[in-house]
Amino acid sequence: MSLDVDTPEPPTLEAVDPNEYDDAEVVGDTDYKRAEIEDFLQEGAWDEAFTAWAADTNLDEDAYRIVLDLDLLSRFDFFWDSFAERVGYHAPGLPEDWKERDLHPELDSWSTVSSINASLTELGQEVCDVLLDSYIDWETEYEAPDDLPDFGE
Rank of each mutant, 00 (worst) to 15 (best):
E9L: 14
P10D: 02
P10G: 04
P11H: 11
T12F: 10
L13C: 07
E14V: 10
E14T: 12
V16S: 04
V16F: 12
D17G: 08
P18N: 05
P18K: 09
P18S: 11
P18D: 04
N19A: 06
N19T: 10
E20A: 08
Y21V: 01
D22W: 15
D22F: 13
D22P: 11
D23Q: 09
A24N: 04
V26R: 06
V26H: 03
D31N: 09
R34E: 15
R34L: 13
A35L: 08
E36S: 08
E36W: 09
E36F: 15
E36G: 09
E36P: 03
E36T: 11
I37M: 12
D39H: 13
D39R: 07
D39C: 06
F40S: 11
F40V: 01
E43F: 00
G44N: 04
G44E: 00
A45I: 02
W46T: 10
W46V: 08
D47T: 08
A49F: 09
A49E: 09
A49N: 04
A49W: 06
F50P: 05
W53I: 09
A54S: 12
T57L: 05
L59P: 05
D60C: 09
D60I: 03
D62L: 10
A63I: 01
Y64L: 05
R65E: 12
V67A: 12
D69S: 10
D69V: 12
D69E: 06
L70D: 02
L72N: 03
L72R: 12
L72I: 02
L73N: 07
L73D: 04
S74W: 01
F76A: 02
F76D: 01
F76P: 03
D77V: 00
F78I: 07
F78Y: 13
F79I: 06
F79T: 03
D81L: 03
F83R: 14
F83W: 15
R86M: 12
R86L: 14
V87L: 06
G88H: 04
G88L: 06
Y89C: 15
H90F: 08
A91T: 01
A91F: 04
A91N: 07
P92M: 01
P95C: 04
W98S: 01
W98I: 00
E100N: 08
E100L: 02
R101F: 01
D102M: 04
H104G: 01
P105W: 07
D108C: 06
D108Y: 09
S109K: 13
S109R: 11
W110I: 09
S111F: 00
V113Y: 02
V113E: 07
S114H: 15
S115F: 03
S115P: 02
S115D: 15
S119G: 11
T121A: 12
E122N: 11
G124H: 12
Q125Y: 10
Q125K: 13
E126V: 15
V127G: 15
C128S: 14
V130C: 11
L131K: 07
L132H: 11
L132P: 00
D133F: 02
D133G: 13
D133I: 05
D133C: 00
D133T: 13
S134I: 00
S134P: 00
I136C: 01
D137L: 01
E139V: 09
T140H: 13
T140P: 03
E141R: 10
E143Y: 10
A144C: 08
P145T: 12
D147P: 09
L148E: 15
F151N: 14
